[in-house]
């Protein structure tokens, strides 16, 4: 139940006025009905700057209710500045319950990661999106990219990927890898690592994307085909962490961050998803080393 003490007086529930929420809600329904298509919306001013997650935040504010349990992550961590600020804003304008436990959340706002724990049907994941247009790297004009989407003309993007392979023997797009949604629209999945792309395909949960500065909302409903763009003779690959493991929990099946010691120069890796890592660490310390045995990428990704 909401924490009334935490709520600052003088604000509407969830900060936004009701007419703004209504508009965002209508756009969300259209975004869900046309998976991968970018729906324009008004995008209001918020007490955080555009570029700091205002798109995701507006979605969360239009969605959230007193019964929700909210988790906010930035690059997999609950405790960095962007996530902390957004969580505090949500708490102070709604009093809603917050958590760091992926499994306990009903609504998760994320910047640039999908949690390692597999999400369930009743959960919704809200992405903060800096650049919603996947065709922007080949076409600067919004009028033209909109036409290209209308005609499902993605040839210039395919040429771009092909030339990348010719030049570098690899598609050089790391994060923000373009995907085809439901066989119709090419979509920018936000700057999540390649590692997370397979988690979008036929996911059980609803995925919503909000770009505040660019004023776009789009969605991937549950159980929807999401295919990374690839060639028959050049398959899509996720990041490889062969021979590496998390220095904290020992995980060999999660997306790892590399840390370099300032003094010794030694390199080690830790899980990018901090809540997942903490959960595994606790499980190991309670039940001994056998408890956290993994069978490959738990989300079906596979390196």
């Amino acid at each position: 139940m909401p924490d009334k003490q935490a709520v600052r007086p003088g604000y509407n529930f969830a900060f936004l006025d009701e007419q703004t929420k209504k508009e965002i809600r209508r756009r969300i329904l259209k975004a869900v009905a046309v998976p991968g298509y970018q729906v324009p919306f008004a995008s209001r001013e918020l007490p955080i700057a555009q570029g700091w997650g205002t798109g995701g935040l507006q979605l969360t504010l239009a969605l959230v209710g007193p019964g929700d349990v909210v988790k906010v992550i930035d690059q997999g961590s609950d405790d960095v500045v962007n996530a902390v600020n957004i969580r505090r804003l949500l708490l102070q304008t709604t009093g809603v319950k917050t958590t760091e436990d992926t499994g306990a959340a009903t609504l998760i706002q994320t910047r640039h990661r999908i949690p390692e724990e597999r999400l369930r049907e009743e959960q919704a994941l809200v992405f903060q999106v800096p650049y919603p247009e996947p065709l922007r790297r080949v076409e600067p004009s919004e009028v033209k990219t909109r036409e290209m989407h209308a005609e499902a003309d993605y040839s210039r993007l395919w040429v771009f990927l092909y030339e990348d392979i010719v030049r570098w023997r690899e598609i050089t797009i790391g994060a923000q890898y373009p995907v085809l949604v439901n066989g119709r629209y090419v979509m920018d999945p936000s700057p999540i690592p390649r590692w997370d792309i397979p988690k979008l395909h036929m996911a059980a949960n609803l995925n919503l994307f909000g770009a505040g500065r660019e004023k776009r909302i789009y969605a991937v409903p549950p159980y929807t085909r999401v295919e990374p763009l690839a060639f028959e003779d050049h398959q899509f690959r996720v990041e490889s962490f062969d021979g590496k493991h998390c220095a904290v929990c020992g995980s060999t099946a999660s997306f790892l961050d590399e840390l370099i010691d300032d003094h010794t120069g030694a390199r080690r890796h830790t899980c990018s998803d901090v809540a997942y890592c903490a959960k595994r660490h606790q499980l190991l310390s309670e039940n001994g080393p056998g408890a956290g045995r993994q069978t490959g990428n738990e989300t079906g990704g596979g390196a």
């Binding site: 529930f13 209504k22 329904l29 869900v32 969605l63 959230v64 209710g65 049907e121 609803l206 409903p221």
Partner: peptide
Amino acid sequence: DPVFDSQRVFRRILGCMARP
């Protein structure tokens, strides 16, 4: 209630729109 009932109703419609 224009704040809380519309939020609840919207979430249910959204749940159904996302899961025909």
